[in-house]
């Protein structure tokens, strides 16, 4: 997992900021927030596909962090600790909303069959070159919540299947299966998008 770039300045190190935050130093809280806000907020936004919800969840994640910071002993990286905490906040939220953290197999059968039929269609649009970031972002947002959770955790956030299984409360096999289906669904969405664009430019 990548870390945000460090600024060349007289700012305290992260370890110093953590120690100062444990003493209730407002500036240290702010420094930690500034360093990790993008990662935490992006995670929340990807998993909920909703700006307002993502902001509320990012806020909740940082508040939980600050409430618990006195218990942080440095056994794991701070960013890992914060990230795991943020994932838990989002998953808890999804469960409260009764959204499936992991898709139910029976609700995805139709999608899978459709996907396989389309894969071997005669007029398939090839997905080559680079994938537009915004298009991919929108496609991820339109995934069913269960697919989206696994895809975000694995392909965007870099979690392994065994970690996802533990966090999301599913089997490793289920995580792998959901990820594959999510990628197939994304492929469909991106291809449809390209086909629509090609059609528009042909007509217009």
């Amino acid at each position: 997992m990548t870390e945000p770039k460090q600024h060349q300045s007289t700012e305290p190190s992260e370890a110093e900021a953590i120690e100062r935050a444990k003493q209730g130093d407002a500036e240290a809280f702010r420094l930690l927030y500034d360093k990790h806000k993008r990662r935490v907020y992006s995670l929340c936004l990807r998993m909920t596909a909703n700006t307002a919800e993502a902001e509320d969840l990012a806020q909740e994640a940082f508040l939980q962090l600050y409430r618990k910071i006195a218990t942080f002993r440095g056994e794991s990286a701070f960013s890992t600790w914060l990230h795991r905490l943020s994932v838990n906040v989002v998953l808890m939220h999804l469960r409260k909303k009764s959204l499936p953290v992991v898709s139910l197999e029976e609700t995805t059968q139709g999608t899978e069959d459709d996907t396989q039929k389309r894969d071997f269609g005669a007029d398939d649009v090839a997905l080559t070159g680079s994938i537009d970031r915004l298009q991919l972002q929108r496609a991820v947002e339109s995934l069913p919540p269960g697919y989206r959770t696994i895809f975000v955790l694995h392909d965007i956030e870099g979690y392994e299947h065994n970690e996802i299984a533990r966090i999301a409360g599913c089997s490793i096999g289920n995580s792998k299966s959901q990820l594959h289906k999510a990628r197939m669904k994304l492929r469909d969405l991106l291809k449809m998008n390209r086909a629509e664009k090609a059609e528009k430019s042909r007509v217009g």
């Binding site: 993008r38 990662r39 992006s42 990012a58 806020q59 997905l127 970031r133 991919l136 991820v140 392909d155």
Partner: peptide, 29 residues
């Protein structure tokens, strides 16, 4: 599928929360 997975990794930390988030956190703290 590999292309999608590679592009997805680039989406990490792509978004900035609005200033409202820090204001609310600070208020709660």
């Amino acid at each position: 599928l590999r292309l999608i997975a590679a592009a997805a990794a680039e989406l990490q930390s792509a978004n900035e929360p609005s200033p409202r988030v820090w204001q609310s956190i600070q208020f709660a703290l």
